[in-house]
Design a protein around this nucleic acid. Structure first.
Length: 564
RNA sequence: GCGCCCGUAGCUCAGAAGGAUAGAGCGACGGUUUCCUAAACCGCAGGCCAGGGGUUCGAAUCCCUUCGGGCGCACCA
């Protein structure tokens, strides 16, 4: 698909390279080594549409003043068959390029032709990438951190898809190990307490204290009564875990589906043990001499790969740590399943694990640059201007389900993607639930609905969106029209940068800008009732705007309403 | 103590790879509707980019340092 801005940048690079060659041939400049020519977009309109700092960078090599180099280059530029109209030297030696307006009209043609594919690019070239996110322990409900990680991870995945990667969304289910033990013990304690009274057994201090554990056991007793009271504890715990765990996983799945997240793979930690891959991985490390014994435990030499400390992977009681299965899991991702690139989303409180995870990946023979870990800061909820921890309705910690009930999926997803992952996020529940202009979600959705309403009205009068060929786009000369088109032209670039920086928050800002420019256009320029040629040209612009807003909202998995 | 993240307008935040006069939104104030959705638009105000040093043609951005906030530093996950 077409990224017109990238094409223009390429035109400029080529013009500059040719000018350098020509100037050298004429003896005006020496032959110089030029690595890359940076093309920037100036903030000030008077500085043109694009600019380059090449003259400043070459000053030393050329032994000439930047301004002098710039004007030599400009004199030797050839703009034939490009969108460039003219170039100027400005400031300390910038070369500013001004474009023919035809590039704007071509942009509209591209959008009209590509439709829902507009914005898709192919920097990924089909490379296999896995985005693993949320992966919360299935021992309880999803919380706000999971909600942010979910919105972020899902949008990163969508952005990468739009950028041409072959994306797999994955949830790692921690259905083995210590926390499952604790889960079993907690369930068992509640089971006994429910049947024999609070005092019959003391609830373990480090157990899961949530109400949901009690709910599970109430349901279990309702179905199966007290048949496990006399069973041996191990069987009893296994039975209770087998009852509650699938229920939790199912609930998590449902909750995430309601949130608009659909995983390709739910990967079970336990399966690593069942398949023998866990053992295989440990043996692999052993053979490589990367394990040693100390204090009765098995340690992994993470420091050999740049981590700060070595890490225990088999405890002295013989049980593996979480990190041990994580090594096997990541070996599975890269070696067994052949992903070119793996992105994990972790809460920022896990940042201490980044170095050791990369060390582990390196240890199993994979370039750690193929693993990216996106850390996101934790979330504070605000309600009535105060920090909210508990839901008034349920009296429990606010869960993803509560959030969706309170503000809805669109607002939740939009808000979580408004800010960069690394910044702390204050989530204002009142604002997110508000149906007014203070709420940025509605601002964007309203622009879409407004367009749809306009198109409906015109359609009812027999006027439909024309094809780009039958329209005289040069009639679009108002600044509101041209600013809007420029913004629409940037969309493929936004996808590119979001993909490269793994920051989908750019897109919420971008689509807000599009909406804003559209609203300005709408106020200044009428469509219906204008002279027919102008009306058709504007109609095409309106339709292109709708396409872009819809495409962005699709990536964010936010509804683009036709009426509001 | 060591390490990671953060500090930009009253509030919440943008300023990818160093660029020309630092931007939005919200809030405040003042305007706009016989006309395609006013959930909108326009105008105005608001800043020593936490402080101090460096690096260079050029720094909010890179390096050092101080201060302030958050989070890590388990045979938990």
């Amino acid at each position: 698909m077409t990224n017109i801005i990238e094409n223009i940048r390429e035109q400029i690079r080529s013009i500059v390279r040719k000018a350098l060659t020509v100037a050298a041939e004429k003896g005006l400049l020496p032959e110089m080594a030029v690595n890359e020519i940076f093309i920037e977009t100036p903030k000030e309109k008077q500085h043109g549409d694009f600019s380059t700092n090449i003259a400043m960078l070459l000053a030393k090599q050329a032994k000439k003043a930047p301004v002098q180099i710039a004007s030599i280059l400009i004199d030797n530029m050839d703009f034939t068959d490009t969108y460039i109209q003219r170039a100027e030297c400005a400031g300390p030696g910038f070369i500013n390029f001004f474009l023919e307006t035809s590039w704007l009209y071509d942009t509209l043609k591209i959008i009209s032709r590509e439709g829902e594919d507009y914005g898709r690019i192919n920097i990924g070239q089909g490379k296999k990438v896995m985005v693993e996110f949320v992966s919360a322990n299935p021992t309880g409900p999803l919380h706000m951190g999971n909600a942010r990680g979910g919105a972020l991870g899902d949008c990163i995945a969508s952005v990468l898809q739009a950028a041409g990667y072959d994306v797999t969304r994955e949830y790692y289910v921690n259905d083995a190990g210590n926390q499952i033990e604790k889960f079993g013990i907690s369930l068992e304690a509640r089971y006994i307490q429910l049947l024999k009274g609070e005092d019959a057994i003391e609830f373990p201090e480090d157990g899961y204290h949530g109400e949901d554990i009690i709910d599970h056991m109430k349901d279990y007793i309702e179905q199966y009564g007290d048949k496990l009271l006399d069973a041996d504890p191990e069987t009893r715990r296994r039975e209770l875990v087998n009852f509650a765990l699938p229920r939790n996983i199912e609930r998590i799945k449902k909750g995430l589906e309601a949130y608009g997240i659909n995983y390709d793979v739910w990967f079970s930690e336990q399966s690593l043990y069942d398949s023998g891959e866990f053992e295989e991985t440990i043996n692999f490390l052993k053979e490589k001499g990367l394990l040693y014994e100390k204090d009765g435990a098995q340690w992994f030499r993470a420091t050999d790969f740049g981590a700060e400390k070595d890490v225990v992977i088999i405890r002295s009681n013989g049980l593996p740590t979480y990190f041990a299965s994580d090594i096997a899991y990541h070996r599975n991702k890269f070696v067994k399943r052949g992903f070119d690139w793996v992105i994990n989303l972790w809460g920022a409180d896990h940042h201490g694990h980044v170095a050791r995870m990369k060390a582990a990946v390196a240890a199993v023979g994979v370039d750690p640059a193929r693993l990216d870990i996106v850390l996101f800061q934790l979330v504070r909820l605000f309600k009535n201007g105060e920090i909210a921890r508990m839901s008034k309705r349920t009296g429990r910690a606010i869960s993803l389900d509560d959030l969706l009930e309170e503000v809805g999926r669109d607002a939740a997803r939009f808000f979580f993607n408004m800010k960069a992952a690394g910044s702390h996020l204050d989530f204002d529940l009142d604002l997110a639930a508000k149906q007014s202009n203070e709420n940025p979600v509605y601002y964007v959705q309203y622009a879409h609905a407004r367009i749809c309403s306009m198109l409906r009205l015109l359609e009812s009068e027999g006027i439909s969106v024309p094809s780009a060929e039958e329209v005289d786009l040069t009639l679009l000369t108002a600044s509101e029209e041209q600013e809007l088109i420029k913004k629409l032209a940037e969309y493929p670039e936004e996808i590119r940068i979001s993909a490269q920086t793994l920051e989908p928050s750019r897109l919420t800002r971008y689509v807000t800008d599009v909406a804003s420019l559209f609203h300005s256009f709408y106020t200044e320029c009428r469509v219906k009732g204008e002279e027919e040629k102008l009306m058709k040209a504007r109609l095409l612009l309106v339709s292109a705007t709708k396409t872009v807003i819809k495409n962005v909202l699709d990536i964010l998995s936010i509804n683009a309403p036709e009426r509001m």
